[in-house]
Computed example of a mutant assay.
Amino acid sequence: MRADRLLSLLLLLQNRGRMTAPELAAELEVSVRTVYRDIEALGASGVPVCAERGPAGGYRLMDGYRTRLTGLTDAEAGSLFLAGAPGAARELGLGAVLATAQLKLQAALPAELAERSRRIQDRFHLDAPAWFRDAEPVPHLASVARAVWEQHVLRVRYRRWNGQVYPGPDAREPGRRLCPLGIVLKGGIWYLVAVAAEEDEDEGEAAARTFGASRTYRIARFLAVETSGETFERPDGFDLAACWEESSQRLEAALHQGTARLRISPRAQRLLPMQFGAAGTRALESAGPPDHEGWVQVEMPVEAQAVAVSDLLRLATEAEVLGPPELRRAVGEAVAVLAERYAAVPSP
Rank of each mutant, 00 (worst) to 15 (best):
V144G: 07
W131Y: 10
A83Q: 15
D74S: 09
A41T: 01
G84A: 11
A44D: 00
P48V: 00
A51D: 02
Y36L: 02
L113S: 07
R18F: 09
G58D: 06
G57C: 10
A83I: 13
G87S: 08
I120H: 06
R118S: 11
A111D: 14
G93L: 14
P129C: 03
E76Q: 15
E27F: 07
L126W: 13
R37Q: 01
D63L: 07
Y36C: 00
A56D: 14
E27W: 09
L103W: 09
L61V: 00
Y65G: 02
A56L: 12
A145V: 05
E91Q: 15
E112Y: 03
L72R: 05
E115M: 05
A142D: 04
L72P: 10
R123A: 14
A41Q: 06
G57V: 08
R123V: 05
A111G: 11
A145C: 08
A77C: 08
S143W: 10
L105T: 04
A88W: 02
V97D: 08
S45A: 13
T100F: 04
Y36P: 01
L94P: 03
L98N: 12
A96I: 04
A114D: 08
E112T: 11
E136N: 01
R90D: 15
V47I: 13
G95C: 07
E27S: 14
H125C: 14
E29T: 11
F81W: 05
L28M: 12
L113R: 02
A145Q: 10
G43E: 00
F132Q: 06
W131N: 01
Q106N: 12
G71N: 04
S143F: 06
D74M: 08
A99N: 15
A128Q: 07
V144D: 04
Y59A: 00
A142R: 15
G87H: 05
E23A: 13
W131V: 10
A111K: 00
P139E: 06
R66V: 09
Q106E: 13
A85G: 08
S143K: 15
A26D: 15
P48Q: 06
L109Q: 11
A114Q: 08
A107F: 12
Q102T: 06
L126N: 06
A96C: 07
A130G: 02
T34R: 13
T100E: 15
L42Q: 00
S31C: 09
R60N: 06
R33F: 03
L109V: 00
W131C: 07
D134T: 05
L28E: 12
Q121E: 15
I39S: 00
A51Q: 09
L13R: 04
L28H: 14
E52V: 10
G54P: 13
G58F: 11
E27T: 07
G43M: 00
A21E: 05
H125V: 12
F132L: 14
R53C: 01
R118T: 11
L105Y: 01
A99F: 13
L98G: 12
Q121L: 02
